[in-house]
């Protein structure tokens, strides 16, 4: 791309110099920590090279942790994607920039960010042992949701709180794809005698499929890397990977290996890179229809 006025070499160099502050910042606070996080996994406590931490990832305990992380992320991603897509469907035909839409979009942005400690509070107040819903169900309907023991502070207890931020994230990521469905396609289909079912079956569904799968993957990654809610709810044990990292960082005695956190971080990055790579591949297919 040739600029209208060719800048002198000096100006060009000056412009390059303008990029250095940001480059230096990203190097120190993004690239360096990422490299450090991964590399420490390959060293033992006394600083010698070792694969013990990496092989430690394949012990039954850690594998089980990855297993429950996958399970939790998968379940909440599927629930979040289906419910979120339903909301997006309901919002079809509402005015872009209209009041209803602005409110739902803002609420979705807040709730998608509403991870963490506050979300844990909300669910303790709702379905905790003395929570509002727990008490109403027990006193009015005689249903004891904790009849088989209190599951809120275990991995199954994370499902509802996670769904609470997964659904809004689905709304944010999937809505643009639904909005890109052109009315002309529906008109063309109807003109040729297509029913609404035929329209969904042959036009809308194929166009939306990559966007839906992509959003599903993003939701999976979101749950997989989420830490704060789990940290606030689960104080005993480390049933999912982020909690294992906490244990490794805080106690420094997990499996007798302080650098286990590095190996766990590497494991997480590998999963995240695969998921996000698939996401961006699907995303570029999606954008074809959004021109």
């Amino acid at each position: 791309m040739a600029p209208a006025k060719k800048p002198s070499n000096r100006r060009r160099r000056l412009a390059y110099a303008g990029l250095t502050p940001f480059a230096a910042y990203v190097l120190i606070f993004l690239a360096l920590p990422t490299i450090l996080a991964v590399v420490t996994g390959f060293f033992s406590d006394d600083g010698s090279l070792t694969f013990d931490n990496i092989t430690g990832l394949f012990t039954p305990t850690i594998l089980a942790t990855f297993g429950s992380s996958f399970w939790l992320s998968g379940v909440t991603a599927v629930i979040g994607a289906v419910v979120g897509a339903l909301i997006c469907y309901a919002m079809l035909g509402t005015k872009v920039g209209g009041l209803l839409r602005t409110i739902i979009e803002s609420a979705a942005s807040v709730l998608a960010q509403f991870g963490g400690v506050m979300l844990a509070f909300a669910f303790i107040a709702t379905i905790g042992v003395q929570g509002l819903v727990t008490v109403i169900l027990r006193d009015t309907f005689g249903v004891d949701i904790f009849a088989d023991g209190v599951w809120l502070y275990q991995v199954p207890g994370l499902i509802l709180p996670y769904v609470y931020f997964q659904v809004p994230l689905m709304v944010i990521t999937f809505l643009p794809a639904l909005t890109a469905l052109r009315p002309q396609w529906a008109e063309a289909s109807a003109t040729l005698g297509g029913t609404r079912f035929a329209y969904w079956r042959h036009i809308a569904a194929p166009v939306l499929a990559p966007a839906f799968l992509g959003s599903l993957l993003l939701l999976f990654a979101n749950a997989f890397s989420s830490f704060a809610t789990a940290a606030a709810l689960i104080s005993q044990g480390s049933q999912i990977v982020p909690l294992q990292i906490r244990a490794a960082l805080v106690s420094e005695t997990v499996l007798g290996r302080e650098n286990m956190a590095g190996a766990l971080a590497l494991g997480m990055i590998v999963v995240m890179v695969v998921v996000m790579w698939a996401y961006s591949a699907l995303q570029s297919r999606t954008s074809r229809w959004q021109k």
Binding site: L30, P33, L36, L249, A265, M268, M272
Partner: peptide, 21 residues
């Protein structure tokens, strides 16, 4: 690409390397 890396390298991973930094 640089600006979306923090989605792939989430806080819980970044913090492992941020401790020495």
């Amino acid at each position: 690409f640089i600006c979306i890396i923090p989605i792939t390298v989430p806080a819980i991973v970044l913090v492992v390397g941020l401790a020495p930094v």
